[in-house]
Design a protein around this nucleic acid. Sequence first.
RNA 1: GGUCCUGUGGCCGAGUGGUUAGGCUCAGCUCUGCAAAAGCUGCUACUCCAGUUCGAACCUGGACGGGACCUCCA
Length: 487
Amino acid sequence: MENLFIYNTLTRKKEAFKAINPPFVGMYVCGPTVYSDVHLGNCRTFMSFDIIYRYLLHLGYKVRYVRNITDAGHLEGDNDEGDDKFAKKAKLEQVEPMEIVQRYTVGFRDIMALFNSLPPSIEPTATGHIIEQQEIAKKIIENGLAYEHNGSVYFDVEKYAKTNNYTELTGRKLDDLLENTRDLDGQQDKKGRLDFALWIKAKPEHLMKWPSPWGIGFPGWHIECSAMSTKYLGKKFDLHGGGMDLQATHHTNEIAQNVAYCGESPANYWMHTNMLTVNGQKMSKSLGNSFLPMELFTGNHPLLTKGFSPMAVRFFMMQTHYRSTLDFSNEALTASEKGYVKLMEAYKTLQTLKASSQSTEDIKTLERNCYEAMNDDFNTSVVIAQLFDAIRIINSAHDQKVSLTESDIATLKNIFQHFVFDIMGLKKEEENGKANTALETVMNLVLDLRAKAKANKDFATSDEIRNKLTDANIQVKDGKEGVTWSI
RNA sequence: GGUCCUGUGGCCGAGUGGUUAGGCUCAGCUCUGCAAAAGCUGCUACUCCAGUUCGAACCUGGACGGGACCUCCA
């Protein structure tokens, strides 16, 4: 259990995981901005952290997993004068901003539930923590690292950088940043070009706004995470995560805010998940190449030839390590879907295995390999390779080509329960029970008739039955010990 | 332009200084009335160039290609 190694963005190394106060673990992940449907790339990040959450739980940690909902504060344009995304979308659709927030929050939770992701312990919202964000901004001003100008509050990056390592998360040089930051319009209020807003003055027509010591306005983007993480996890907690695209700006600024606020960098371990790409390019809303989960499930998308089930998609994501980019294609998904089906079929077969007195296989090593893979920075890809080894053994045992003891079979069942279901969060996708029972009855009847035909060497009839069933997506398999079928 | 990451077989994707990743695809075989499934076997790779080393796809340097970030983004 103590052997878990995690790649820490702060040090760019895999480090042994040491909880601050075991068995408790505090984990914060930057959640979605709910101004439109989450796309598959967003889902990948949250599924990656779902695995991490599940594995920590499996190891016996008591995890408080906080994942925020960003429902205010994101600016639309290239400057701080713009509307926030919610207000813009709301005007477009003639609805209240919070109506947008509600719609997409519910949609997000539904999708994550379909992907069988566990809900976080706390899912706080930015709009629910305006006071806390203002308090932090006030304190940073008091500490001399932020300044108010024209009703907005900015963080003084250059001043902060004199006594702190502003770029510790990216390893960039401050001078490079200063030289290469683009010139943007509408930023006259800022002293330094790297300064970012903690609080932004709202124009009269702005829809989402709150009173503050600096006038009517709304919070900057980065401050919400500082406010919510310190509120629920304290000034110092174990893990902080998010997508890689948040690393350079959002997380860098978040650390600066926390240090300026209370003198402490918030998390011991920073984890970043890599992007989902389409034809080698990052999937994102702004590039317009994003897939909605629903399009994927239904197959209703120009790049797809068919739909894929949530579990097949989850399995697809698990086959790649979370720090590698994952390229999305019809072909890759199809391959994963087959692998997933094979895994589930083997699980069924496993339930029917009969024990021998002798064993020809080393199942314990296989189990240990699975743990070692997870302990090595959550390497689900290697876990899956081990599982396919298990599948081969299960199928061979079923064909009586290898033998397994009672204890081997129990270990295999444990491997499935722990790694497939508990940790990777896969589940069997079965039709509902009622329909299944009815179908079962009909299938037994049909296969009975076919068996009679076969017994009479009436292969024409038996093949016809089989072909018709195949056409209806029901596969019939004539095994040594009778006929089985699957959909 | 700057910073960082990356380049693996038909496709997707792990990994390690010397030993099989794995999946999918394709071909052959076994089993089977025929199929399917399953098992076995094969197609066996590491962008290029130079260096370090007894030995490098894995370390170092360079070239070329791809990507991310620098602006909202998981």
